[in-house]
Design a protein around this nucleic acid. Sequence first.
DNA 1: TTTTAAAATGTAATCGATTTCATTATAGAA
DNA 2: TTCTATAATGAAATCGATTACATTTTAAAA
Lengths: 348, 348
Amino acid sequence: MEKQVTIYDLARALNLSTATISRALDDSPLVKPKTREKIRAMADKMGYRQNLIASNLRKQQSRTIGVLLHEVNSYFSTSVLAGIEKITTREKYDILIAHSGEDGEREIANTRNLFNKRVDGLIVSLAMSTVATDHFNPFFEQGIPVVFFDRVAKKMPCNKIVIDNFKAGYEATTHLLQQGYRRIAHITASLQRNVYEDRFRGYKKALTDHHIRFDPLLVESCSLNREDTLAVMHQLLKQKPDAFFITNDFAAAVCMDELQRSGIRIPEDIGMMGFNNDILGSLINPRLSTIDYPGTRMGETAAQMLIDKIKTKKNGKATAEHKSVIISSTLLIRESSVKKARQRRGHK
Amino acid sequence: MEKQVTIYDLARALNLSTATISRALDDSPLVKPKTREKIRAMADKMGYRQNLIASNLRKQQSRTIGVLLHEVNSYFSTSVLAGIEKITTREKYDILIAHSGEDGEREIANTRNLFNKRVDGLIVSLAMSTVATDHFNPFFEQGIPVVFFDRVAKKMPCNKIVIDNFKAGYEATTHLLQQGYRRIAHITASLQRNVYEDRFRGYKKALTDHHIRFDPLLVESCSLNREDTLAVMHQLLKQKPDAFFITNDFAAAVCMDELQRSGIRIPEDIGMMGFNNDILGSLINPRLSTIDYPGTRMGETAAQMLIDKIKTKKNGKATAEHKSVIISSTLLIRESSVKKARQRRGHK
DNA sequence: TTTTAAAATGTAATCGATTTCATTATAGAA
DNA sequence: TTCTATAATGAAATCGATTACATTTTAAAA
């Protein structure tokens, strides 16, 4: 392990003070252009690399953003991460990713951990089983900006990025109704989470708007993993549904597979509607109708919003405004929900 | 932004020196148990949190591991990350994830960046288009441990975690041959990368071992994204293959979908074999035969190996040994490659 | 009780960059 | 040329924890 070149080495080599070196490397107008040049050249020559740890200690920042996710193994999650990364890279922030595996306890532990790591800000999508949100209080108390996206805490005083889940649920259900489906089962997840609750409300509203009585027996909630999804699907099957509106593409694909294997035709016998526009949906047969949901843009927006907050905070102004951004989503009609004229070779 | 509690505050409150405080919080045997208790209690009471930035500066470490990936949006990548995370969490390391999107240039930039961030070690899987590997030299020069996994640099002097891709390719091909397929097309990717080259060699060896002449026209290389894969598949179709061995499940699923949509039956008309055991393969119809490839364990092994190296390095011993670990993979025979007795009852 | 080894604690330097508050150099004005 | 305002640079404190080395306490041995 060879020793690193520091600004002290540069100062000695050039017979200047560390103050000047530091300023030059930071492009400060306080140092004469000619001096700056010399310093730059020497830094290159000696292979100087700034020690960000020392810099961060002195500047009392970490230049790191914490990202708290419920899971990372979905297409949606990786899209969001890509969006976040795009912005943070440009703004020279690091990201520390923690995921809870949908476990509220782990979410609490991760939150504490990121707090201790002294992240400059936090981007969060809540775990399925999270109930209280006290674990975010240290951030609020310290004035560390927090931005929620997708699965947000309803009454929390901070910025939020969401889609209109109510509208999306309404449109998905309406589409199924227009295709002639009448007994639409709904597989959802914890109604504690805004996303699922709002979609569910949209579903109910669409039904009543079409003069169809909402039947609680046609709705089941589960973790959305393979086993649980199949269990509730079989439960729902007893109610003789003619369509499924499932709040997640992976779960929808699992159901479609199981149904088809037991001889049920989709969309002829049962219509199918997912949510999320996972790549998966474009590779199964029939192609899955779904709600397109721009993860990358959500991530970009969340990151930009957070960094803006961090910056304005640094300038002293404590911005107490908590704006919510609603990103648009679109209904994607493919094959699994279109009874007539099932067109072959539709791409994407 | 309230001010933080530091060990100086604790020292003042308890009329002790910061040295004792620091030692107590670090569970040093040098401090009397009773004193330790008191310090602990006061730390809790005052809401003390260690400043890792200061600690890291003093200890000349970052307690951060860099992870350099080619992509993060595959099931395999997220599995590896989960494995790495499991170990690093336990060992109290942070991870900084950078991905190149298969672009060699971006890989170089990311490598430099992680070096500047002073990561304590690096875990790498090479991008598709990487040729030279000079960008890792700074790590070697500084004695910073590097572990490669999966896509490794052949002649690089460091630890590696791989599966036996030659054997896997051999077994996959042999299986297809045993099922009676004779003209087996192979879709692969850059043969610069060990994984693809080894599988390809396995494929060729299996053919010759079964007295089938290797036909270069049956092999195409591409980026494995949707468009490119379909293009080379159509190219290969001209050679009238009766099976495909595709070096990646996603690409295999894309091909299967396209073939089925043009009326070709799988596995009756064309057999299909993927690689990676992506979840995808268990959701499509017929289920995709593939090579199971334990991403999580690879990640765990890589992380553990790296951390061991970091630790032994700290103890002064510069371990120059470069062991390679070979993780076992298994042939997973499902429906897409088994001609007879296909026991499903779907439509058609 | 004194001596001595071991245990416990303290002092102060250190990690490397940043920044406040001097101080010195320089250019233009008088 | 002298003065002054400004530009350029420097000295030293600072961020918070760690740790080599010094010092004091304590307990056991004599």
